[in-house]
Design a protein around this nucleic acid. Structure first.
Length: 176
DNA sequence: TTAGTGATATCC
DNA sequence: GATATCACTAAA
């Protein structure tokens, strides 16, 4: 029985390329106003790193939407894509360097839109912190899960250099 | 494969 | 103000 550890500011205060794989297998917990705790193990993440990353929202500069990426690590960045899909990211690395990790899937819900829908993640969480927050946090139960990298998806507009970066981490299928 | 969805950035 | 674009999903 491992001791459960809640991820702190130090965890997110590292480069997104280090944080993204380290988040695989961790458990995202969202506590609703009525006290219900929704939890799901993270199985897939993607990293978006800096203004030079053409796939990163901050590639167009410090726009209103990308503003959150410039905040300090641990800040939650939620935005709505294609109408009704909420995408959830956590800002990583040092302040004023726009980078973050996108939560792409959980163990029960594949796909970033489904994952946030299942956990009832909405844009009201945008700009909040994921550390020292009584409503949402990430737990590390000590279990280890192996993973592999793949190319990021859904960013064909970013050009060959950036869309081919192996900045997507996927948990390996469990053996039965 | 295609339709639907609405916030955002960009262009009048 | 108008348009084009999009880190997607569901239905066919």
């Amino acid at each position: 029985m491992q001791k459960i550890r809640i991820l702190d500011a130090e965890f997110f205060d590292r480069d997104c390329l280090v944080v993204a794989p380290d988040l695989i297998g961790k458990i995202l917990v969202h506590k609703l106003p009525d006290g219900t705790e929704l939890r799901e193990r993270i199985t897939e993440t993607e990293a978006y790193r800096g203004e030079e990353d053409k796939a990163c929202h901050a590639s167009k500069g410090r726009t209103k939407r990308a503003e959150m990426l410039y905040h300090k690590s641990g800040t939650i960045y939620v935005y709505i894509c294609y109408g009704s899909n909420h995408m959830m990211n956590v800002v990583t690395g040092e302040e004023d360097h726009p980078q973050g990790v996108l939560f792409r899937a959980g163990e029960f819900h594949k796909g970033p839109g489904r994952f946030t829908k299942a956990l009832q993640i909405t844009k009201v969480l945008n700009g909040q912190s994921i550390v020292k927050n009584p409503e949402i946090w990430i737990e590390d139960d000590g279990d280890f899960y192996s993973w592999h990298t793949e190319k990021r998806v859904g960013i064909d507009y970013a050009g060959d250099i950036w869309k081919n970066k192996p900045w997507r981490w996927v948990m390996d299928e469990q053996e039965y």
